[in-house]
Design a protein around this nucleic acid. Sequence first.
RNA 1: GGAAGAAUAGCGAAGUGGCCAAACGCAGCUGACUGUAAAUCAGUUCCUUCGGGUUCGGUGGUUCAAAUCCGCCUUCUUCCA
Length: 374
Amino acid sequence: MKDFYLEILHVDKSCGARYGILHTSHGNVEVPMFMPVGTLATVKTMSPEELKECGAGVILANTYHLSLRPGEDVVAAAGGLHKFMNYDGPILTDSGGFQVFSLAEKRKITEEGVTFKNHLNGAKLFFSPERAIEIEEKLGADIIMSLDECVHYPATYEYMKNSVERTLRWAKRGKDAHKREDQALFGIVQGGEFADLRKYCAEELTKMDFPGYSIGGTSIGEPKDVMFKMIRDTTPYLPFDKPRYLMGVGSVDAILEGITDGVDMFDCVLPTRIARHGALMTSHGRVNIRDKKYEYDFTPLDDNCDCYCCKNYTKAYLRHLYKCDETFGKRLLSIHNIRFLIHMMEEARKAIKEDRFLQFKEDFLKQFASEKGF
RNA sequence: GGAAGAAUAGCGAAGUGGCCAAACGCAGCUGACUGUAAAUCAGUUCCUUCGGGUUCGGUGGUUCAAAUCCGCCUUCUUCCA
């Protein structure tokens, strides 16, 4: 593993929040950071230029989905994901472990791996830990994930224990199969809500010595306090000097909670998905742009936001585009939500460096006035 | 001047004696969305003190029962002069 490491530059004196720089083969990015999700090698409706303008560093893509379309060989022939999608920043691929959860009715798990009946035409698609790595090597992302089982919540202790053991075996198999030196392979901590399993999984993965660790099995329908406990039950058992990635978490309060406990990386479809559905994160809380009250509102979405959308367009116009189902509206709203979270991270990093993260978190949440959801 | 046809909720459009407060689509409104089967999905749109009450151009009938059958009126469309 070359060119990949986390340089921790400061730890907030009041909590576990850390500020640092993640070095990758496609550039360095500051942490804690938010990573937009571009499952099919595109963050829906947004161009790479727009992502950069929003301040995006790492973006995600998905192994399961790209192996189906266009197929990893196409991406490899294109010269890898970076060239294929024209993004020269760092890219992370998820392994397909989340699809074990989200496509639960369409798959079967065995010790060997996961057999999907793919969601497009029902054809059989087999993912073993080795196969996931093989695809991820062809896709060529900078950071790649081990194949894991993202277990449904709630699960019995019995089920979770067996699943964790298997996910650990899969992690080992994936690590043994991984050959590319320019990719950082992360292990994923599972264990659900069971503190001892989280600890066990984190410690066993640490023994395998991965360049980074993910916290998985979160944001799958569990209550917020359960999620927060899962984080607290995990981070203490991860090596201090390696990046920690909380998978699939994108609500404002959960991100801030994760940072408090020493998480460095977050990703989520939430900002882009809800943007396409007309819901926006703003410094004053949630805005549903379809609301009639914005019909004649010619002010920006968020007067504290510096994004392309807020600098140039009004709520009345955004509402109009949304009502007419115009693509440009979804794009502008996606830009805003992505920028909102990335900007929040910029402010969070600043606060950590100044040892005032807890105060920042309190103030931010107060102003954001999160009522439900994000 | 004559003939035929049509009028249904915000719009379009089913329904042609009881199972109709009335399908369906659109539009509107409300939710949901967290490692993207999601440009998606769910609920809802006459009034209501939730018992019920008023609706299907208007009006008067037939019937135990009418959006549905009959008379008249109004408006619209097409055709013939």
